[in-house]
């Protein structure tokens, strides 16, 4: 990709394509979140548990996201790692009302962070502490404590509480993600410029 394309990207002439992995346990709300991020005419009404994975696209002001909406069911979780290489960013969704499986979410997150395709890359990770509308839901602070997010030192990460049904908290998260991705592109192209 040439410098012109990049410039065009910054100027909003052509949007940069970014691959995002959407991970998290089954029933955490991944598909619901992705669905809410799509333009309202492309949204579906009934959301069913994902089998395998789906590929969805949505755009923000400066980026065009291609999202791998993975199934979170136990038997499909071993598919995740095959897509780690392609992922330029990760959205990790947690059902903050499912206290029982918080350990399982942590376990899957730890496995992800220790995977060779992820471990040494500065992939930005956005956490959604989803279902904050549910009465017994844990706060995003509590979720981040239970998942030991403070231990992630070598990757940019951010957590926001969200209610995917009403779309609350989603823009904040996506803004952050866009910022990190653009940032990394700028860093990369700076180094390209200095080479010239």
């Amino acid at each position: 990709m040439g410098l012109f394309d990049k410039l065009a990207g910054w100027l909003g002439l052509k949007k940069k394509e970014v691959n995002v992995l959407c991970l998290g346990l089954d029933n955490s709300g991944k598909t619901t979140i992705i669905n809410k991020l799509k333009p309202s005419n492309a949204q579906t009404q009934d959301i069913v548990p994902t089998i395998g994975f789906n590929i969805e696209k949505f755009k923000t002001s400066s980026l065009s996201f291609t999202v791998f909406d993975m199934s979170g069911q136990g038997r499909y979780r071993n598919l995740w790692e095959h897509y780690y290489k392609e992922g330029q960013a990760i959205i990790f969704v947690i059902d903050s009302a499912d206290k029982l499986r918080m350990v399982v979410a942590k376990e899957e997150l730890d496995t992800l962070l220790n995977h060779p395709d992820v471990k040494h890359r500065r992939v930005p990770i956005l956490f959604f502490a989803n279902k904050m509308d549910v009465r017994e839901a844990l706060s995003s602070v509590k979720v981040s404590q239970l998942l030991c997010l403070e231990n992630i030192k070598d990757k940019p990460w951010h957590i926001c509480a969200s209610d995917a049904l009403r779309g609350e908290g989603l823009p904040e998260g996506v803004d952050w993600l866009q910022g990190r991705v653009v940032n990394s592109i700028v860093l990369k192209s700076k180094s390209i410029v200095s080479l010239h």
């Binding site: 346990l25 089954d26 029933n27 136990g74 979780r77 071993n78 499912d98 029982l100 499986r101 350990v103 399982v104 376990e107 899957e108």
Partner: peptide, 23 residues
Amino acid sequence: GREDGALVMTTKGGGLAVKILKR
């Protein structure tokens, strides 16, 4: 819950523990 491999244990002292088998 939604976890197939859950082990529920109750104890003599009245405790309740739930363990989940790792994937």
